[in-house]
């Protein structure tokens, strides 16, 4: 089996696995992360989204070979309780979820958007999150939290 070097949340890691194994499987099983979540396995729900470079991608349908040598950021890498990303802080402040299973993928999609557009409109936020599903109906709270975070990051 081939060995791949990649950077996970700022730390260089090597993984030995078949080239077409989904990145999500590598992250959860081989590297022990829990932030990227299994939701559909078909890139259709967004629960597993991670940043590859600055792009939000579905880890469940991204093969390992496609991220060789690249920087992958999961929700764990966005920030921590001690040093939270403004988005994480805003989601807590606005209590912007119910069950929270979708939230790590949504934070990743929002982080990718804010790197691209510092002060997105509400419509831009909704468009950027359209590939992330939320079943609990916490959408509007999340949009408000993202607007608040963007205002804090780019006053």
């Amino acid at each position: 089996m081939p060995t791949y070097a990649l950077e996970i949340n700022g730390t260089p890691r090597t993984v030995t696995a078949e080239a077409d194994i989904p990145l999500l499987s590598i992250l959860r099983q081989d590297l022990g992360l829990s932030g990227p979540r299994f939701g559909c396995g078909a890139g259709a729900c967004g629960a597993c989204r991670v940043l590859v470079g600055t792009e939000s991608v579905a880890a469940c349908d991204t093969p390992l070979w496609a991220v060789a040598g690249k920087a992958v950021t999961t929700v764990e890498g966005l920030g921590s309780e001690e040093d939270p990303h403004p988005l994480q802080r805003a989601f807590l402040k606005h209590q912007a979820m119910q069950c929270g299973y979708c939230v790590s993928g949504i934070l990743i999609s929002a982080a990718a958007l804010l790197r691209r557009v510092a002060r997105p409109s509400e419509a831009e936020i909704r468009a950027a999150l359209d590939r992330n599903l939320c079943r609990c109906g916490a959408h509007n709270r999340m949009v408000r939290a993202i607007l608040a975070a963007s205002a804090e990051m780019a006053p």
């Binding site: 929270g100 790590s104 934070l107």
Partner: peptide, 13 residues
């Protein structure tokens, strides 16, 4: 909620 926004293990999964 903190576990959920920081991606810490919390779910049965």
């Amino acid at each position: 909620l903190a576990d959920k926004v920081f991606g810490r293990p919390r779910f049965i999964h």
